[in-house]
Design a protein around this nucleic acid. Sequence first.
DNA 1: AAATTATATCATGATATTATGATATATGCA
DNA 2: TGCATATATCATAATATCATGATATAATTT
Lengths: 114, 114
Amino acid sequence: MSGTSNDSQEQLKIHADILAKFFSGLSHPIRYRIVATLAEKEMTVNEIVNELGCSQSQISNHLACLKWCGYVSSRQEGRSAYYQVTDKRILDILELAKKVVADNAEHISSCTRM
Amino acid sequence: MSGTSNDSQEQLKIHADILAKFFSGLSHPIRYRIVATLAEKEMTVNEIVNELGCSQSQISNHLACLKWCGYVSSRQEGRSAYYQVTDKRILDILELAKKVVADNAEHISSCTRM
DNA sequence: AAATTATATCATGATATTATGATATATGCA
DNA sequence: TGCATATATCATAATATCATGATATAATTT
């Protein structure tokens, strides 16, 4: 007996957790801003802190998330950590999302269930 | 005197809330599965309930989120509500994300800070 | 070595999101 | 009209996420 119900749905279910987690990487304003800012050029933690005006702790914590999810990677240079966007396609996702959102921005921001 | 600090960062800050909220639309496994399932064809709430094996309340609630954020739209037919993906570009985002994720799926799922 | 700078980590309280079960609404049918 | 079906909404308890401040680590400078 193979798959009682729906095999493709089974597959989807397995991927869904990971994909949803991936998207939750961009689901926080500060994390989104970090990625969008790093789109331009790589930066140290301190530079990001100054650029975004958030606490060092906040930035480091969110960077940790983003690194886990593969959005950014870092290289150590002296006592500074330089972060950059890992994969150019991530910026494509951001661009696409901006276009889709453009039409119903007001609608989205008024959503209370999320 | 124009913008004391960074104007582009100001702009980014404004958009970030909306974009982050947009992405949080896909940041829940059930919502992700709904969108991915509707990618194939439009469906009624009941059909989604059966397909995903979740409660009607759960599905309706998540559909409400997705509708707010413009991911899906619905049309009423008799006493059924048919839902479909609003914008084809949303599916492009899903496809892109799948590709980016493919490389570091294990990494993502082990992330504990999110 | 001691002090400084840059970053990471962690505990905890505050806040936001989610699941659940109950209930409401609206349509179609007997 | 009364009942069944399909969907939406809501209150609340459970859970997850986040901000904050404190502390740890590690490299550099004095």
